[in-house]
Write a protein that binds this DNA or RNA. Structure first.
Lengths: 226, 226
DNA sequence: ACGTAAGGATCGTTGAACAATTCGACAAGA
DNA sequence: TCTTGTCGAATTGTTCAACGATCCTTACGT
């Protein structure tokens, strides 16, 4: 009986949830990540609060939340804009990735995480076979989220979630999703192999090259915009 | 003339700063980190908004900011409380530290960061000589902030700032600051030496031991509380 | 010991109001 | 033509008062 009660405590976080502001933030976050709101676009308090049927004050609380996640850019007296990351941002994002993902592949992978990673590799391959490059991008993101989960740290998972959401903004600025994601379908498979069997150093080295490649791709296509 | 104008654009970030909510958040952040508000304490919207002379709505925006930094705990319909980290939180915080600081010491230290680190080592030694253990704690925190700055990533700096603010909450729960900080005055000096001269792997190994030590100290003294 | 009910305190959310700020347009001047 | 000053509309920043919803405590009854 005590066991059952102990299991229950895992559902505890779901209890606290709710609050209009958070639900509004969830909606906006989804809209942003799916590209409905474009990077650089201004979000009007009046029109959105009216469309969602919540008061301006509540909407502002939601805006605050998303600003803190770096998805929105809050400029004083000018309103909030969907964040438009600069080239410097891209470079910094990859610096963080090298740290978080590098630490991950150096650990002995927990079974749980390994299964997750395999799954996302398959997802990417399936999507690629159907020329669904948007889907490949999504699977890619989940692949790296799974990678980082090897660190077994809730805080790192959360940080990675935010980072990838921010990176998705970068993707939305670029056209030609195929060139952006195709090279990494194979690389994911290879990296998985190195994690499973190879020595950690080998996987780490390959990962560094992987990230260099991805960063170069982005920054190159990003140069003109700033 | 154009050159002068270009230089000016560096001051641009300073323009955006302000907004009552952010200033309120700054005040509360300081109060929390100095221990004026104790972990677990409830912060009443009414009394604080009255004391600070701002409206409840504005105060709530500030609360949101600090909740996102994990300094406050926002429980629906019950109000906000100064966060009281659990033992599991402490363990996770140290997992993150191992990743961020470990990556830092493996890099070739930039001159700028090295100077900062030296400074904080001296600060800690000076404070220890005067039996100012609060001061040692502060210097210690700045030492690790400086360590992490070797990563040369604004986002990692920011993450570390938050992490250390959260860790300060843990310190405030414990009595006997001396036992908590004294051992690390010497260890800081040694780690600095290894970073300057030793091979990175040596510094990394010592750092792991350092963090194990610190974590054990905290978790041990923390066990009873939960 | 346990379930229920009542009451008070506090939070969640709203709507309206006004001041502060931005931005574009247009006119005046060099 | 280019710059500068001024005005007004639009939007944000902040406050205030109000009401329903939720939680906590206390008291009561079984």
């Amino acid at each position: 009986m005590d066991d059952a009660v102990a299991d229950l405590s895992q559902d505890r976080p779901r209890l606290g949830r709710s609050s209009t502001a958070e639900r509004v933030a969830d909606i906006l976050r989804d809209r942003i990540s799916e590209g409905f709101f474009r990077p650089g676009q201004r979000l009007s308090e009046e029109s959105i609060s009216e469309a969602l049927g919540v008061s301006r004050n509540t909407l502002r609380e939601a805006f605050r939340l998303l600003s803190h996640e770096r998805l929105l850019d809050h400029r004083l007296n000018r309103g909030v804009f969907v964040r438009l990351p600069s080239a410097a941002d891209v470079i910094d994002l990859y610096r963080v990735r090298r740290v978080l993902e590098g630490a991950a592949v150096r650990r002995t992978p927990p079974e749980r995480a390994l299964a997750l990673i395999k799954e996302t590799v398959l997802d990417a391959e399936r999507a690629a076979a159907q020329n669904d490059w948007q889907g490949v991008g999504t699977a890619n993101i989940r692949f790296h989220q799974a990678l980082v989960s090897m660190n077994e740290s809730p805080r790192i998972d959360e940080a990675m979630r935010q980072l990838l959401a921010e990176l998705r903004l970068v993707f939305h600025v670029m056209e030609n999703p195929r060139a952006l994601h195709e090279p990494f379908v194979d690389r994911n498979r290879i990296l998985l192999g190195l994690i499973e069997s190879g020595p950690p150093e080998k996987a780490a080295a390959y990962l560094d090259d992987y990230l260099d490649h991805a960063e170069r791709l982005l920054v190159h296509a990003y140069g003109p915009n700033r």
